[in-house]
């Protein structure tokens, strides 16, 4: 465990909690892509199946359970409890265009051709693009609530911090994971445009709105 890894995990946790609290406190999921949240629930489910097969640490087990629990709680709030506030018309990204190619790629390029390993690989590839329905929704409506931008910033920061963690681990442990690195770079790059808007607009107190 190094500082980049720990702050990455905490940033990820902060993102998940910010989103849950935003929906819970405002009693509304307006502006949030339910499709992205379903994809994240699928990501955690397929990645953390090793909860049943191996124990790594108490930290590892607790964080996995929290991530999975929060992901499903978020999906429940969007599609059940606050369904009336869900903006389905603007959440029109076709997720099959992500899930099908990602599924194919995880069967073709993985560390080991076994069910658990393929599902883990699927989750890594899927996570890298799971935010696209959310970004698509913002580009469609042309704006995002400030709290939603804080959520996106923490979520993007998490994978960027993991990149530094992997550089650290390569130098000090001589170990690297090419699948995670390539997917992590793709994932971080997808946030770059948003990071720019976040720094130039939101941090200066302005609402994030895109030119028409």
């Amino acid at each position: 465990m190094n500082i980049f890894r720990l702050t990455g995990d905490l940033s990820h946790l902060a993102a998940i909690i910010i989103l849950l609290l935003k929906i819970w406190k405002s009693r509304s999921c307006a502006g949030i892509s339910g499709k992205s949240q379903i994809l994240f629930a699928l990501v955690f489910t397929t990645r953390y199946l090793d909860l049943f097969t191996s124990f790594i640490s108490l930290y590892n087990t607790c964080m996995k359970l929290i991530y999975i629990g929060c992901a499903y709680a978020t999906v429940y709030l969007i599609y059940a409890k606050f369904r009336a506030t869900y903006d389905g018309n603007h959440d029109s990204f076709r997720v099959e265009f992500l899930v099908v190619p990602v599924g194919g790629l995880s069967v073709l390029i993985n560390h080991d051709f076994s069910p658990l390993e393929i599902l883990w690989t699927f989750s890594i590839y899927l996570e890298s693009v799971a935010i696209l329905p959310q970004l698509f929704m913002i580009s469609k409506t042309g704006e995002a609530e400030t709290i939603t931008t804080h959520y996106l910033f923490c979520l993007g920061l998490y994978r960027a911090l993991y990149l530094f963690n992997w550089i650290w681990r390569f130098y000090f442990e001589g170990f690297f994971d090419m699948i995670a690195i390539v997917a992590g770079v793709v994932q971080t790059v997808l946030y770059c445009d948003f990071f720019y808007l976040y720094v130039t607009k939101v941090l200066k107190g302005k609402k994030l709105s895109l030119p028409a």
Binding site: R5, D9, H12, D50, S54, I56, S57, N60, M63, K64, Y67, H111, E117, W120, Y162, W166, R169, F170, G174, F175, F176, D177, M178, I179, A180
Partner: peptide, 10 residues
């Protein structure tokens, strides 16, 4: 340098 899955990561 060895390539493989970093199993302790989240």
């Amino acid at each position: 340098e060895e390539e493989g899955k970093l199993k302790d990561e989240l």
